[in-house]
């Protein structure tokens, strides 16, 4: 049976992790590679780097981070943030990323997703969908960290991206992101049930019940969280044990 994936996400700026400073076990908690190694050893099912580097000049730092991570971590690695061209994707894949997440570039030019999927295969093209509630059962797409409305309906957009060859949707509720009040379950379920490709639920996790709800009620294939892991509130092992006890199939940890 396929297991629900648990994915820690690291925000990386200028090659440094911007959140999660109280990992006592790490020599350098700001080093994304050290954190990646920790999550790998804890049995995370996948890892996500979100590059939030603002300046274009410093963007190349992420390639080195991905490269060094791939040297040591033998699990799937998704990298997102600032991916705009086929060359960006190629460089990330060559550095050792398995999947690349595209957001603004997809909204600006949807056929970019089709080109990318044709060139590199759907399996490595993730479309990041940032959605905000705009009324009962209705969500809109936003870019630029949730500041700019794209004037698109989230469900229709997810369907279009799946049709264009995306292999997965990374779905973030902008309403819930950072609130620790749980996923927007209606949103997650509406998108997940509307498309045949996997959905990764993101935005709002504050408790382990939220992780369970994302899969059980939101029908997500994977659940992504940042702060509950980075600030040491829960380990991957605790998360898996909790989810398993709640009836969500997860991959057992190898002792």
């Amino acid at each position: 049976m396929l297991k629900a994936r648990i994915i820690p996400c690291l925000d990386v700026k200028n090659g440094r992790v911007v959140k999660g400073v109280n990992f006592v076990a790490l020599r350098d908690a700001g080093d994304p590679v050290e954190q990646a190694r920790l999550y790998d050893s804890q049995g995370a099912d996948e890892l996500c780097f979100l590059d939030i580097t603002a300046s274009h000049e410093d963007r190349d730092i992420i390639f080195d981070v991905v490269n060094r991570t791939a040297e040591e971590c033998f699990m799937p690695l998704t990298v997102g943030g600032g991916v705009r061209t086929l060359d960006d994707i190629r460089k990330l894949l060559l550095a050792g990323a398995d999947k690349v997440s595209i957001n603004t570039a997809a909204v600006d030019n949807p056929s970019f997703v089709r080109e990318a999927a044709n060139k590199f295969g759907s399996q490595c093209i993730v479309v990041a969908v940032d959605a905000k509630n705009e009324g009962p059962g209705k969500w809109g797409i936003y870019t630029h960290g949730g500041r700019k409305s794209a004037g698109l309906d989230a469900i229709a957009w997810a369907k279009q991206m799946a049709a264009f060859g995306a292999g997965e949707i990374l779905l973030t509720s902008m309403d819930r992101d950072g609130t620790k009040s749980g996923f927007d379950i209606d949103l997650t379920r509406s998108i997940s049930d509307a498309i045949t490709i996997p959905v990764v639920a993101s935005g709002g996790v504050g408790t382990l019940d939220h992780m369970v709800e994302g899969v059980r009620d939101g029908h997500a294939s994977a659940v992504l969280a940042a702060s509950i892991f980075h600030f040491g509130e829960f380990s991957i092992a605790e998360t898996k044990a909790y989810m398993a006890a709640a009836g969500v199939p997860v991959r057992p940890l190898v002792p």
């Binding site: 396929l2 297991k3 759907s122 399996q123 490709i197 996997p198 294939s221």
Partner: peptide, 8 residues
């Protein structure tokens, strides 16, 4: 879902 993606 298809693709079959994840740990089995």
């Amino acid at each position: 879902k298809v693709p079959h993606m994840g740990w089995n």
